[in-house]
Design a protein around this nucleic acid. Structure first.
Length: 266
DNA sequence: ATGTCTCAGTGCCTGAGA
């Protein structure tokens, strides 16, 4: 069984590359983030031609997540129970959730494709929203820990200082704060295991490199895309890698996919 | 570090978000 997660930074802009990559890599289950695509505009027919069922959750211009599967795609959930939206700090109540989570049952596993809020800066309301979102995610996943589960996606948090290219430059920035790292630790405390992929190059399994300033070619990246798997799934993992080849060439996403091979649950 | 990319609207450039 092969599972992949990839922040594609627009499924429309990335469609030719995505289709080529799917045909070459042949994952059974794919978690996509930042599709930036309304659900009704998701390229269902194009991925269907490669043998995938698809489910998409979209807002339009921003966010957007999707699941592709060749091994069943049942009990699809758009957003997770209790997921907060971004409420302006004006006293108005919680807003409608953004399109940041989609879950389904595939091959005996609960699978989530997640796109965590960026947080922007530590003094931004978006940072508090990010922490609230993780707290709610923890509660939602806690309710599903009685089954094999894998939560994948762009968590927008680097779990350790080794997961950023220069920790000194990130002092005072989002993605590395103790509160964000505590949010990941709270997920692991549920019994989720960080499936750390092998880097194709260098010591760090970075998954994201800014488009600017030649960051990719200098390998100045971050590991912010994660695969969090319950014990049943983590114990079956044979290998995992970051496909940095997919970050190369003309018109890439700024994220690379993670590919995980494991023995099937069923 | 702020060098790029994407989207949609104010529309063929620009602001916002990442």
């Amino acid at each position: 069984m092969r599972l992949a997660t990839w922040n594609v930074n627009s499924v429309k802009a990335r469609l030719p590359r995505l289709l080529d990559w799917l045909a070459a890599t042949k994952p059974d289950i794919v978690c996509l983030q930042e599709t930036k695509c309304p659900a009704e505009a998701f390229p269902v027919a194009e991925v269907g031609a490669l043998g995938y069922a698809a489910a998409a959750h979209g807002d339009g211009r921003w966010n957007g997540v999707a699941l592709l599967s060749k091994v069943g795609l049942d009990e699809v959930t758009l957003s997770f129970p209790g997921e907060p939206g971004f409420a302006e700090m004006d006293g108005v109540g919680a807003a409608r959730p953004e399109a940041r989570a989609i879950g389904a049952t595939c091959a005996g596993m609960r699978v989530w494709s997640l796109y965590a809020p960026n947080g922007r800066t530590v003094d931004s309301p978006h940072y508090l929203y990010k922490l609230d979102w993780f707290a709610a995610l923890r509660e939602a996943l806690a309710a599903e820990m009685d089954m094999p589960l894998v939560a994948c996606g762009d968590f927008n948090v680097a779990p350790t200082d080794a997961d950023v290219w220069d920790p000194a430059l990130f002092v005072g920035a989002t993605h590395v704060t103790p509160a964000e790292r505590a949010a990941l630790a709270a997920l692991r405390a549920l019994g989720l295991h960080d499936v750390v992929p092998t880097p194709m190059k260098g010591p760090h399994p970075f998954t994201y490199w800014d488009y600017r300033a030649g960051m990719f070619h200098q390998n100045k990246g971050m590991r912010i895309d994660l695969v969090y798997a319950s014990a049943e799934v983590a114990g079956r993992v044979r290998s995992a890698y970051v496909d940095r080849e997919a970050r190369k060439g003309r018109g890439p996403s700024d994220h690379a996919p993670i590919v995980v091979d494991f023995d099937p649950i069923i």
